[in-house]
């Protein structure tokens, strides 16, 4: 049995988001949504985390940082791209410094749509991640 889905720990990385999605991610922790019910903790440390949540697009400066953080997470791990920026770059896509969505540097498992993504959608995404985590553990 996998305990991963009972206690997914999250690290949240802010790419070049407008902070809209960031605030929604943090809103999940508030009494209103309280993701700790599912054992989810925002841990802020790649070595402890199981889920990497990235908001905002990837730019040329943070590409290497995202890669490092990803590689510092222990397996099994999943990546959640929150917001349209993280999925494709959104309207920043053509900026001189933007590389595009998160999947241009690391593999992404779940995309959460929305600009900004709603907390309900994010929680939905996380629940989808839990299933994925279980599959990954079995592997």
């Amino acid at each position: 049995m996998s305990f991963l889905k009972k206690s997914p720990w999250i690290i949240h990385y802010d790419g070049s988001s407008c902070n809209g999605c960031d605030i929604e991610v943090l809103a999940c922790l508030t009494p209103m949504y309280d993701v700790e019910r599912f054992g989810i903790i925002n841990i802020g440390n790649p070595k402890h985390a199981d889920v990497l949540i990235i908001t905002g697009a990837v730019n040329s400066q943070n590409a290497s940082v995202i890669k490092t953080i990803y590689h510092q997470m222990g397996d099994p791990k999943v990546v959640l791209a929150v917001g349209i920026c993280a999925a494709s770059g959104n309207f920043f896509r053509d900026c001189y410094n933007i590389k595009g969505g998160v999947d241009t540097v690391i593999p992404v498992d779940i995309y959460v749509p929305g600009c900004a993504a709603r907390p309900e959608a994010i929680i939905d995404g996380v629940v989808a991640v839990l299933k994925l985590l279980e599959e990954k553990t079995k592997k």
């Binding site: 305990f3 991963l4 009494p31 309280d34």
Partner: peptide, 25 residues
């Protein structure tokens, strides 16, 4: 105390068991 519901009582055990299933980095 913070107006939230909170995790299950056995959450600490889940955490530890999960940690044992993770890669030893």
């Amino acid at each position: 105390m913070q107006g939230r519901y909170g995790p299950p009582v056995l959450q600490s055990f889940y955490d530890v068991l999960k940690l044992f299933q993770k890669q030893n980095l």
